[in-house]
Design a protein around this nucleic acid. Structure first.
Length: 507
RNA sequence: GCUCCGAUGGUGUAGUCCGGCCAAUCAUAUUGCCCUCUCACGGCAAUGACCAGGGUUCGAAUCCCUGUCGGAGCACCA
């Protein structure tokens, strides 16, 4: 019985089972696990909270990919919140704000709102004041190391029991910038004997002497720490579900103390592991990429060797291909390796049908050609005869890749042109029928005319390759894709002088 | 040291909550064959995994314990 037959038979016998079957099928199409505790009456609302200290590397694509997909799945919302509260060690890059938003757009998502933590400092101050009044926070001038030692042995520091009045005054002095970096912090009063030392009386605000690069925030010296800022914002912006990395495993527990003081309900949290991406030897970190650019190892963020979103974009890989691969990783708490081949496979699926075939010969060897027609007309796409052919002129010589050069006396089939035999003079056209190819005696190779070809630079992950393409390559606009036969897919980047610059995408 | 978390083929993932339908799903990868003017696409096939050891049970990938390995936090970074 075929599947169809079984189905209709089942429909007769037990229609309710068919429904069940369909429901299961539907569930199977959903690649991401269900979000925990989704309230039917409430809109699922999530956030991406990037630090704008540089453009995005590939790992950053995961957050918008997944929360954007959840947004679609639950008919929810997501916002982008720039967590730019450290003007010094994670100093924001003013260009990165827009670059990140562009990356999200390229991935195919549109945030419902975009906010910056550095615009909201007064809000954080207000909540700190409230917390101080409740006895939930105190100012502390302990040197960092000393506090750490006391904390680790579960001892309270002398400032913990100071009166509210003093904390209030000292905090206002912090806000007014009356302390230098390191002199005073505001701590949240948690449980100094909590069994997890990471949760004991953590810092909520500290002093930073370096002005924020954004003009609107350059006067602030008292800055909230991530756990405070993020905790307040998640509540205030109505976030229902948070996804974050395992490095922030303790954040929810830390922020839980603040939420308890304010009597707020903490959002649902999903933690996921780190992503590594194969094919790149380098570390996936903003700072290491910045370093490599400064050292001149990379041309910039969109260098084809850079593990960045801008790089894949320039190579002509669609945002959707990245999104699908990211979503496929799921949200497990263990670390995962993403195979670039998964992204490539998605992208091939997306573009193969519509991409023209063209010839590119890398590092060609020149051979005079004798006899034969004076042009070739290969199809633009092997599965679409209706799209027509391209004309490649052949005057008296062609270029072949070293690996394709036949031994003397042997034949090859120049794809779209015809059979030639290697002689001591060069290549001589023969009258062989295509049967010789079908029988496997003669291999088919790509080629370009030696004189009428167009110089091409192919930029790849392994460095730049120069070569020559058939003349028609000059007619493509920037951003169009071509498939260099037997080489791979590439994006046309620019026509510079008499050279065409292309970026290699994938096989 | 203290505290969390995790472990299914090369990679990712389903199944784990509620043990039997699992000699384990799907994708990718690799290999072979077919198609083809040797790319790509498509078709067919093969390869390959439940971290280890105990326990509970008629029955364990699934529950329990121990171990091993891996990851994370204990910052006035995010």
């Amino acid at each position: 019985m075929s599947t169809e037959e079984r189905r209709s038979r089942l429909e007769e016998l037990a229609p309710e089972l068919v429904e069940e079957l369909d429901a299961e099928d539907e569930a199977d199409d959903q690649v991401l696990p269900d979000l925990p505790n989704v309230d039917e009456d409430e809109t699922v609302r999530m956030r991406a909270a990037p630090n704008p200290n540089g453009p995005w590397h590939l790992g950053h694509a995961r957050m918008p990919s997944v929360i954007g997909t959840y947004k679609d799945l639950y008919d929810g919302e997501f916002i982008v919140r720039f967590d730019d509260t450290d003007p010094e060690t994670k100093r924001p890059d003013l260009d990165a704000y827009d670059e990140i938003l562009e990356a999200i757009d390229y991935l195919g998502f549109e945030p419902d709102d975009v906010i910056k933590a550095s615009d909201r400092v007064e809000t954080y101050y207000d909540h700190a004041r409230e917390l101080i009044e409740m006895g939930g926070a105190y100012t502390c001038s302990c040197p960092q190391g000393e506090f750490s030692d006391m904390k680790n042995s579960g001892e309270a520091c002398p400032h913990r029991e100071k009166d509210i009045e003093t904390s209030r005054e000292e905090f206002e002095a912090m806000v007014d910038g009356e302390y230098d970096s390191g002199e005073m912090v505001l701590r949240v009063k948690t449980d100094i004997e909590h069994k997890n030392p990471a949760l004991r009386d953590w810092v909520a605000f500290r002093m930073i002497d370096t002005p924020h690069p954004r003009e609107a925030a350059e006067d602030y010296r008292c800055w909230p720490m991530l756990d405070f800022q993020s905790g307040i914002d998640d509540h205030l912006t109505g976030i229902t579900h948070i996804i974050r990395g395992i490095d922030l495993q303790d954040s929810a527990k830390r922020q839980g103390f603040v939420y308890d003081y304010f009597d707020w309900e903490y959002p649902e949290v999903v933690h996921w592991g780190h992503v590594q991406i194969d094919e790149y030897d380098v570390q996936l970190s903003t700072s290491s990429i910045i370093e490599r650019i400064e050292d001149g190892d990379l041309d910039g963020w969109d260098d084809p060797r850079a593990p960045t979103i801008a790089s894949l974009r320039r190579r002509g890989i669609r945002g959707q291909s990245i999104v699908d691969a990211m979503v496929e990783l799921g949200t497990s708490t263990s670390n995962v390796d993403l195979a670039m081949s998964a992204i490539y496979s998605n992208n091939r699926d997306a573009i193969d049908e519509e991409t023209d075939r063209r010839f590119l010969v890398r590092d060609g060897e020149r051979f005079a050609i004798e006899g034969g027609p004076d042009s070739a007309e290969p199809l633009l796409h092997p599965s679409h005869e209706d799209r027509g052919t391209r004309e490649i002129p052949v005057s008296d010589a062609v270029l072949l890749e070293a690996d394709d050069v036949p031994a003397e006396g042997e034949r090859v089939w120049l794809k779209g042109y015809g059979p030639v035999r290697r002689t001591d003079e060069g290549l001589t056209y023969t009258d062989d029928d295509i049967e010789v190819v079908r029988e496997g005696d003669v291999s088919v190779v790509h080629w370009v005319p030696a004189d009428e070809s167009q110089p091409v630079l192919l930029r790849t992950m392994d460095g730049d390759v120069s070569g020559h393409a058939e003349p028609g390559i000059a007619s493509y606009d920037s951003d169009e894709m071509v498939q260099f036969v037997r080489v791979g897919f590439a994006r046309i980047d620019a026509h510079e002088g008499d050279q065409t610059v292309t970026y290699y995408a994938h096989p």
